[in-house]
Simulated scan of single mutants.
Amino acid sequence: MVGELRPGEMVLAGIAEPDGPRLHFIGSIRSPWGPEDCPKNIGRAREAGMGARVELDPAFAPALAGLTVGQPVILLYWMDRARRDLLVQAPRHVEAPRGTFALRSPNRPNTISQATVRITTLDPVQGVIGIDAIDCFDGTPLVDIKPWLETVDMPPDSAAD
């Protein structure tokens, strides 16, 4: 549903209201990784000490307003080379097969992955964000960027339950 704009809001021309589930990639992730050497998770990517960057489609550059260097953000990205047919997987790091939804594997029905990363550089004019690390292949399509907020993204303290 399209509503009225509030003062200061800006829309992207040419994007119509979706008539069903669709994705519009907003850019891509540039990383040092390929299929032969990509870390299995963001922790291992950080251990490698190799940063990466996000390159937005220039039309989305204004959407970076308000982000700052040092800020953590959540990247949602489409693992375009992952399998989509595995319901149960047998990764090497666990003792027995597990259901796909019990794993962080990129192989899943909808190959959306996420990583919480820290902004190391920011060029809002060019739509480029330097990030501390990432665990995906170079050129992976970017779905969305969300700010990581402690008050929203930290699970509740289990001791308080």
Rank of each mutant, 00 (worst) to 15 (best):
P97W: 10
L103Y: 05
P156A: 09
V152E: 14
L5V: 05
L76R: 12
W33H: 01
R104S: 08
A52I: 03
G139D: 13
P62M: 07
V152A: 15
V73A: 02
L12P: 04
D157L: 14
P91W: 08
T116K: 05
D85C: 08
A65Q: 13
I42K: 00
A48I: 00
D37R: 07
D57N: 15
P124S: 06
A90P: 01
N110T: 05
G66K: 01
R84C: 07
G66T: 01
D153T: 11
I74G: 06
E9R: 06
P141E: 05
I29T: 02
G49T: 03
F60A: 09
I129C: 09
G49V: 05
M50K: 14
K40M: 04
P32H: 04
P147Y: 01
P62V: 03
G3A: 02
L23R: 13
S31W: 00
G27L: 10
S28P: 00
G49I: 05
M1G: 07
I145A: 09
N110H: 09
R108M: 01
E47H: 07
G130Q: 00
R104I: 02
P72Y: 10
T140E: 06
K40A: 03
R81E: 15
V128T: 15
G127F: 00
E150S: 12
D135W: 00
E95T: 12
P109V: 05
I134Q: 10
V143L: 15
D19M: 07
V94S: 14
V117N: 01
D161A: 13
P124H: 05
R83L: 08
I145E: 04
Q71C: 07
G34K: 10
W148K: 02
P141C: 06
E95D: 15
E4V: 04
A61M: 09
A160M: 13
L103D: 12
E17Q: 13
D57S: 06
L103S: 09
S28W: 02
D80E: 15
F25D: 04
P109D: 09
V2T: 14
T121F: 02
L75D: 10
P72R: 15
G3C: 04
P156K: 11
L67C: 11
V152K: 15
I134M: 14
V152G: 11
A16M: 05
G99K: 12
T116G: 03
W78I: 00
D138A: 12
G139Y: 03
T121S: 15
A45F: 00
E36N: 13
N110C: 07
N41S: 08
R108G: 00
A159G: 10
A13G: 11
T121C: 08
V117C: 04
A82C: 08
Q114D: 10
P39S: 08
D57C: 07
I145G: 06
P72I: 06
I26R: 08
M154Q: 13
L23F: 14
A96P: 02
F137V: 10
A63R: 04
